[in-house]
Amino acid sequence: MNLTLRVWRQKGPQDKGRMVSYQVTDVSPDMSFLEMLDMLNERLTLEGEEPVAFDHDCREGICGACSMVINGTAHGPQKLTTTCQLHMRTFSDGDTIDIEPWRAKAFPVIKDLVVNRGAFDKIIQAGGFISAPTGSAPEAHSTPVPKADADEAFDAATCIACGACVAACPNGSGMLFTAAKITHLGLLPQGQPERDSRVVNMLAAHDEAGFGGCTNAGECTAVCPKGIPLTTIGRLNRDFIKASGKR
């Protein structure tokens, strides 16, 4: 396959950045999207042009590092798939592919396609945990958890914090990420003592970081590689209303 890539190149945080076109030839349909970029980078290096910087690590869809908006869609055209698991057989010979970084004020660009997602860590710091210092834990079987709750908590806990939800949201909101953690911890008996403070503090940290507000547009869940459902946002809202009522 031969393709035209238009890639966002930006030297550093202060640089304005622009889309640059590259031709790539002899792309195998069995390549992953990132392997196709590896190939481009090998060529650029030999031609004396700095390779395209992009975040990636596990390349098996679980670490959440990879982060590209491909033809206007976060993580590209395949549903429930991270960029690293997207394969070139999804594209056709002669295609033009636009590749851009996540765009959000809370995720400033560091270089090319690499952004800083530290804002997500800040949201977790505000309350995305259960306070259980090492050694203080009771016997694991002392608190049974209904299987349905455990399963639903798990579904929310599969979030990989890639940030696609923010990238896709017309409001640049990080609500799905925040709600996934609220849902995971709020459904478990261990998470109850801090439930009220958690939602209030995490939402405050979310807003503080410069994310937009949620309008339930649903773009986030459509691109989420882990399929985190929109209902988690309902849980967040309900917890927030309850917590606000108690204050």
Binding site: F129, P138, E139, A140, P146, A150, A153
Partner: peptide
């Protein structure tokens, strides 16, 4: 014990 106390959602049986 530690992981359960932190909210790690291990697989559970129907009895919880």
């Amino acid at each position: 014990d530690q992981a359960v106390a932190q909210g790690v959602p291990f697989a559970r049986e129907y009895g919880g």
